[in-house]
Simulated assay, not measured.
Amino acid sequence: MTLDLPANARPYLRPVQFADSPIGRDGELARLAGGLLWFSAYELIAVQGGKRVIQRTIPVADLPADERLQAIAARITASRPPLQLGERVLRFDQPQVMGILNMTPDSFSDGGRHLDDPAAAAAAGVDMAAQGAALIDVGGESTRPGAKEVWEGDEIARIAPVIERLARSGTLVSADTRKAGAMEASLAAGAHLVNDVSALLWDDRALDVVIRAQCPVVLMHAGDPKQGADGGRGYGDALIEVYDWLEARIDQVVAAGVDRARIIADPGIGFGKTLADNLALLNGLALFHGLGVPLLLGASRKRIVGALSNEAPADQRLGGSVALALKGADLGVQLLRVHDVPESVQALRIWRGLRDAALTGR
């Protein structure tokens, strides 16, 4: 197939037309990121001067030999290598749950539940792991709209004792922080991964900490890294602009010395984005596989659920949160950051059972 793609246009590929099974369809389908999903076509988007000038569907078998398109397709289909985290392995060949454990007095959903009791908090984290969470994300500073910045020492005092207890129990732990000192303390306490909502931009030392530790890191798009969640100016084309930002940031972090195989990308649902922006990102999630790294989706109990369900308060957003998690799974997201672990794990088990049945061709 030939395609007149302008030399100065920037191309993007979004996997579409997912299929139940590749059986008997050699050459027709491609496998998404080495996981459990197969697709038969790409949506080709070309952007020139900030506007989409091409948007069309191309069967996988007919993808043009354009070097740029082939490179993106290779990143989309490449398997995501597992992470060896101490004695444990975190795999990315199927969607897994990251359980949220907030050590804060003011987080929008569960603030104050475990504050000042690290033993009880760690026990809650162990319970989440027993319920099926692949790792536990421990945070000590709220990013809700209007939340006050927490002094680094207080944040460390909140999370380090919990992380130490969880790590000793054999639980995989990520440190949800944007401060270099908190990252260092968390890693020293046994954290395996850094989850930074500012993509290592809020603290000038954060990137150096991750480079020295050579630990995995989640890079999230948050609009202005100095601001918290929600609101936002709105984007002309949120899907494309967030993709471009994440691609540029990943390249910067890799150039600085972080192994690309240790980077996870998060489009940052609810951070500096309007409702329309968030919906565009959720519907277009598969585009982000073109970054060539595992994807994390954090939509649990967020404002988008309330906005679409009669302003349901945060503690009444279970159904919407599970729906968004399954949307992520359907589009190949590897890590789903959730508050409601047992319900989300059960939903993913049903999802996996359906996928397994489909893949057998029976």
Rank of each mutant, 00 (worst) to 15 (best):
P216W: 02
R25E: 09
G234N: 13
L296M: 15
I264G: 01
I72R: 00
P22L: 05
A238E: 07
V210N: 03
P22V: 01
R233N: 12
D224L: 07
A276S: 15
F92C: 01
V242R: 08
V16E: 12
A157G: 13
V253Y: 02
N102Q: 10
A256K: 09
A206R: 02
V16M: 09
R355P: 00
A182Q: 04
I304L: 15
G86I: 15
A347N: 09
T274F: 07
P22N: 03
V254E: 05
L44Y: 09
G86Q: 13
S344E: 08
L115Q: 10
G146K: 04
A65H: 07
D208F: 02
G99L: 07
T274R: 14
A358H: 06
V60F: 02
A314N: 13
H339S: 04
S79D: 15
R14C: 10
S79R: 15
V162E: 11
D137H: 06
L348K: 08
L83I: 13
G112T: 10
G111P: 05
V16N: 03
G353A: 11
Q334F: 06
R178V: 12
D330L: 13
I269Q: 04
E184D: 12
L90C: 11
V333H: 01
R337T: 04
R80H: 15
P6H: 08
V138H: 06
A73N: 12
G234R: 12
L281Q: 04
F271M: 11
L69E: 04
F18R: 05
P95K: 03
N283W: 13
A65M: 05
M98R: 01
R158V: 12
Q17A: 15
I264Q: 02
Q48C: 10
D340V: 03
F271S: 05
I350Q: 05
K273T: 11
A280Y: 03
L335C: 02
G34Q: 03
S142E: 08
A129L: 09
G140F: 14
L85P: 06
L296R: 00
L29S: 00
D204Y: 01
N8Q: 13
D204M: 07
L285V: 08
L279Y: 11
I269V: 15
D277P: 13
R260W: 13
L201V: 02
R205I: 01
L281G: 02
L331G: 00
R262Q: 15
G353F: 08
F288C: 01
V258K: 02
G34Y: 03
E67C: 01
G132H: 08
D66A: 11
Q17L: 13
E28P: 00
R31H: 01
R88T: 14
A323S: 12
I269S: 03
G361Q: 05
L279A: 11
E67T: 14
V242N: 06
A314E: 15
